[in-house]
């Protein structure tokens, strides 16, 4: 399960087959009018790895998440999760099977307290059936267990002090944290995080990255959308690049950083004419060419980890 294993086995090309894919997507198309927001020929997500999904704004990452998790319907395409076809299922059914996502625009339940938000996340609650709801003795024990788990997670996410606040009173970053922690309450097998670090302060981001790695150690699979290339380099085992709806590259962070097509997608076709760092910042992401010199230090960091 060490990180260096995966790259050795898997080819770095779009649609590469993986040894143990948890998610397999083929021919997935979503059109908005004339715009093909998603047009994924083939993509496999390896089990128990952290996969980063990157790409410029409007690349179709969020739409791809929406399709895979049942919140939007594709015009064409299939996908399987643990070998089961998912297309016909609704979002809640997919979540029940262990595929839980968070949203780019956070969906915190404003007039519920933080702890209530958390408790909602737990799956298989006896007290959620109306018949049992009226008989508290049937669910009180489970509720106490859920609350204990919720408090432990809140502690892990540095949110314990907000426990009894309404979710509406949280900052944007705190809502991101809450939503991620709430998703974990469902004990998902695969977590799909749409820009989980956006708005979270840098110190906390580091901690969060630690938590995400822990999730992998727990045996979960993580797919996340992220713009910060330092974050991507730090935690991802595999990087998938989307542009204009398509998967244009796949590989380790190092391979992706050297990929000409990716640099083109991020910087536009004329990047060689004017590849100033200002320009790269404007595009909303860190330039790959810029981060290339860091590559070695990044690798060193990796080996230090082990």
């Amino acid at each position: 399960m060490s990180r260096s294993e995966a790259p050795a086995e898997i080819e770095s090309k779009p649609g590469a087959t993986k040894p143990d894919p948890i998610l397999k997507v083929s021919g997935l198309v979503r059109q908005f009018g004339g715009l093909k927001a998603v047009d994924v020929e083939h993509l496999e997500i390896e089990r128990n790895k952290i996969t980063a999904l990157i790409g410029p704004n409007g690349a179709g990452k969020t739409t791809f998440f929406n399709l895979i998790t049942g919140f939007d319907q594709p015009n064409a395409g299939e996908w399987t999760y643990n070998g089961h076809p998912m297309k016909a299922l609704g979002p809640h059914q997919m979540a029940k099977q262990g595929m839980v996502r968070t949203f780019q625009l956070t969906k915190s339940l404003s007039k519920l307290t933080v702890i209530e938000n958390m408790k909602l996340g737990a799956a298989n609650q006896v007290g959620e059936s109306l018949g049992k709801a009226l008989l508290p003795f049937t669910w009180k024990k489970q509720e106490a267990e859920i609350e204990r788990r919720a408090d432990a997670l809140l502690d892990r996410f540095n949110m314990s002090h907000m426990r009894s606040e309404f979710a509406a009173s949280l900052s944007g970053g705190q809502r991101k944290l809450l939503e991620m922690a709430r998703a974990l309450m469902a004990e998902p097998e695969i977590v799909m995080l749409d820009e989980p670090m956006a708005g979270v302060n840098p110190a906390l981001t580091q901690e969060l990255l630690g938590h995400v790695k822990e999730l992998r150690e727990e045996g979960r699979t993580i797919v996340f959308v992220e713009h910060d290339m330092d974050v991507v380099r730090d935690i991802s085992d595999w990087v998938v690049v989307m542009a204009q709806g398509q998967i244009i590259a796949e590989g380790t962070h190092a391979e992706i950083g050297a990929n000409q097509e990716v640099i083109d997608a991020y910087l536009g076709r004329h990047h060689d004419e004017e590849m100033s760092s200002d320009k790269a910042q404007e595009s909303g992401t860190e330039s790959f060419s810029q981060s290339e010199p860091d590559e070695n230090s990044g690798l060193e960091k990796e080996s230090n980890d082990e």
Binding site: P91, A95, G127, A133
Partner: peptide, 23 residues
């Protein structure tokens, strides 16, 4: 009860409820 918690959550945001595996 947990049932009521789901109702209130539906009031706040249905999609959040769905994403957590509840119909």
């Amino acid at each position: 009860s947990p049932w009521g918690r789901v109702l209130k959550s539906v009031r706040e945001d249905e999609d959040a409820v769905r994403s957590l595996g509840k119909n």
